[in-house]
Simulated scan of single mutants.
Amino acid sequence: MTRVTDLMDVFVCAGCEAVLTAPVVRVPLPPEAHVSCGHEFLPPLMAPGTYAVEPLPSGRPSRMWEDLAESEAAAQGVYAPVYGVSFGPRDRAVVAPGDVRGTVLVPERCGDSCLGVVAGEGPNLVCEACGLPVACREDDCGIWSAVWLEPDAVRRVSTGVPAPVGELTPLPPVEPPGRWSPRWAAATGAALAHLLAASDGGPVVLPDGLVTELLGPAVRALLPAEGPAKQVGLAGPGLPGDDLDIVLVPYGAPPPVGAAAVPLPDGVWSYLALPGETRPIPASGTLPAGVLRDDYPLPDHPWSLLRPDRDAFLYTLARLPEVRSPWLRALYDRVWTSPYGSVF
C-alpha cells in the first residue's frame, strides 16, 4: 500500500482537543473521490485505518465557470471549463466513517438527498464534547461513503506509531455479477488524462494485454496514429521500466529518469503488473500427471467493454496545467461538449 507518511496520525477537535478519529495513515487521494456512480449505495471511499487529503478547494461555496475569468479559476486549480469551480477550503482530509470517533450527526444540517445523507450548507457532524462543527458525512446513493474533515475545525496530531507495513494487493477489475469495478473505471479515466498530457499530442504505443484493452479505444479516438510514437509501459516495484517514455506507476512511485509518470492506485497497478494465478492447482498435494480439474471456477466475465470514466477523465484533465496547451484544450473541449460516451 502506498503511504504518504510512515507514522499514524489522529485528528482532534480544534476547539477542545477531543480525539475525533482512530489512528490513521495518510495515503494518496483515490481518483474516484469526486466521481459519483449510478443510483446505488457505494462502499467507503477510504480503506479502514487510512486518510487522504484533497489539496485543492472542495465543497461549498462554488461559482459557475461562466462567471469567472480563467485566471480566477486557475487560482483555484482549474484550467478548463467545468460546471462549478469550488471556492471551498483546501486540504480537507477524508476518512472512512468507521474511523470517526466522538461526533454527533445533526440531521437539521444535512442537505437534500435521495436515499442517504449529504452535507448541507455546512458540516453536519459536530464534536460530541464541545459542539463545534467538524466534518461532513456523506453516504447518499451514487456518492462514496466518507467523512470529510473541515481543515479549520480539526488538527492532525502524529501518534509517533509507525504505520503497518502495507502490501500491494491486486484489485479485481470485475465485480459480481459482471460489472466493471467503478474504482477501475475512475482510475483508467484519470490515467487517460495523465497519459494524454504526457503524449504531447503525438501517437503512443501501449503494451500488449489489459492495458491496451482498457486504454486502446480511447487512445485511438483521441491521438493521431502517424508520427514518432512514445512507448508506454508499466514500471514500479520489480519493473524498472527501461527504454519507456511514459510509465504507469503506483501513486508516489518515482518514474525512471526521463520518463513521464501516469499514476495508478495500488490495487489497479498491481493487478496489471503482478503475475496472478495462471493454472488450476489443487488446494493441497498434486494432481496426477495428465489430469486436470473440472471444477476450477471461471473468472468473472464483464457484461461489456470497460470504458474509462468520462467524469474522472474530465475532472483530472481540467486540473492539469498542461490542458492550457492549445491541442490539449481542443481535445478537452471535444470530450466536454460531446454526448456522454460518444468519444470513448
Rank of each mutant, 00 (worst) to 15 (best):
M1L: 15
T2Q: 12
D6I: 03
D9F: 07
V10W: 06
F11V: 02
C13G: 10
E17P: 00
V25E: 08
R26D: 04
P28D: 05
L29D: 03
V35D: 01
H39Q: 10
H39E: 12
E40K: 04
P44G: 07
T50M: 03
Y51M: 03
A52P: 02
G59D: 05
E66L: 06
D67W: 08
A69T: 13
S71H: 12
A73E: 09
Y79S: 08
A80V: 13
P89Y: 10
A96F: 11
P97A: 13
D99R: 11
V104Q: 14
V106G: 03
G111Y: 09
D139H: 12
D139E: 15
C141N: 14
S145H: 14
S145L: 10
V154D: 01
P164Q: 09
L168S: 08
P170R: 08
E175W: 07
E175F: 01
E175V: 13
E175M: 12
G178C: 04
W184A: 07
W184I: 06
A185I: 00
T188S: 08
H194P: 00
H194S: 01
A198F: 02
D200S: 14
L206D: 10
G209A: 05
G216E: 04
V219Y: 04
K230W: 05
L239G: 02
D242Y: 07
P250Q: 11
G252T: 07
V257F: 11
P265E: 01
V268E: 01
R279N: 01
P280R: 06
G285M: 01
G285C: 02
Y296D: 09
L298A: 13
P302A: 09
L306R: 04
P308F: 05
P308K: 08
F313I: 09
A318M: 09
P321K: 12
P321L: 13
L331D: 03
V335S: 04
V335H: 03
T337R: 15
G341P: 04
